[in-house]
């Protein structure tokens, strides 16, 4: 299997492929959004502006389906950032990969990129993958899930203090551990679901590539399907985030 280039700077490990992927995704999302608003017009919106407006409208209606309409507005930017970042991240690993074969220890200056032990572990040479979907790394999806986790609980505490605290002890006080497990399982499942889907997709792509030319039609089918999965997972992550926020901030009676 592929080895990822992990370097250590002052005892702190950095996964270069993940960092590259995160940066590329972020820059792509920002560039796309900037392109959409580069030539803003009320009367004569450009195609890409129309597209971005459609994305915002879509997010608005999606968020509004999980919480009252008037609360949905302030989460549109969050939802759109999430869905765009995750979707583009999911697609990033699909079209191509950058893999180098390393047979000797790879060093940049004093920084060890691939250590001799790693190479020996993999039988003399290592396939180093420089390019992947950031969401195919559980560390990255965990980061996103942590953001969502913090957001949900901070918003719950700030906007809905009494009912938020009360819901840990419902329906009876001794349900507290169960409720805590439930709350913890939410971000964990978010991170794992996204990671597993995208990682599995990339593993399968790598596996199909081993078939050589025979796998070509299979590869194109799977890549198409992976785009679909990427969209579904991005949508799911965003919607679940909104559902969690809604659960934490909107009091039941208020919601009806």
């Amino acid at each position: 299997m592929h080895v990822f280039p992990i370097i250590e700077l002052g005892g702190i490990p950095f996964d270069l492929s993940s960092i590259i992927a995160i940066l590329v995704s972020s820059i792509l999302v920002f560039a796309l959004a900037r392109a959409a608003v580069s030539n803003l017009s009320v009367h004569n919106p450009s195609k890409i502006q129309n597209f971005m407006e459609w994305v915002l409208e879509f997010m608005h209606s999606t968020i509004a389906s999980t919480m009252p309409m008037h609360r949905a507005k302030r989460f549109i930017t969050l939802g759109t950032t999430l869905i765009m970042f995750i979707f583009i991240s999911n697609l990033l690993g699909l079209p191509f990969g950058i893999v180098t074969d390393v047979k000797e220890e790879l060093k940049w200056g004093n920084v060890v990129v691939i250590s001799q032990e790693t190479i020996e572990e993999h039988g003399g040479y290592a396939h180093v993958a420089w390019w992947k979907s950031p969401t195919a790394d559980i560390a990255v999806t965990a980061g996103l899930a942590i953001v969502v986790f913090l957001l949900v609980h901070i918003l719950g505490l700030m906007m809905n203090t009494k009912h938020y605290l009360k819901h840990y002890f419902e329906p009876y006080w001794f349900f507290f551990p169960l409720n805590v497990i439930k709350e913890i399982s939410k971000p964990v499942t978010l991170a794992l679901r996204l990671y597993a889907n995208i990682f599995a997709g990339e593993v399968l792509i790598a596996t199909i590539l081993m078939l050589g030319w025979i796998g070509f039609p299979l590869l194109s089918i799977w890549q198409g399907f992976s785009i679909f999965i990427g969209a579904i997972q991005a949508f799911l992550f965003t919607v679940l985030t909104m559902v969690y926020i809604s659960q934490a901030t909107v009091h039941e009676e208020e919601g009806h």
Binding site: S18, A139, V140, L144
Partner: peptide
């Protein structure tokens, strides 16, 4: 699991 990726992901996001 490289924890710096998590931190970088959070910061980037």
């Amino acid at each position: 699991f490289v924890w710096t990726s998590t931190v970088i992901a959070i910061v980037a996001f």
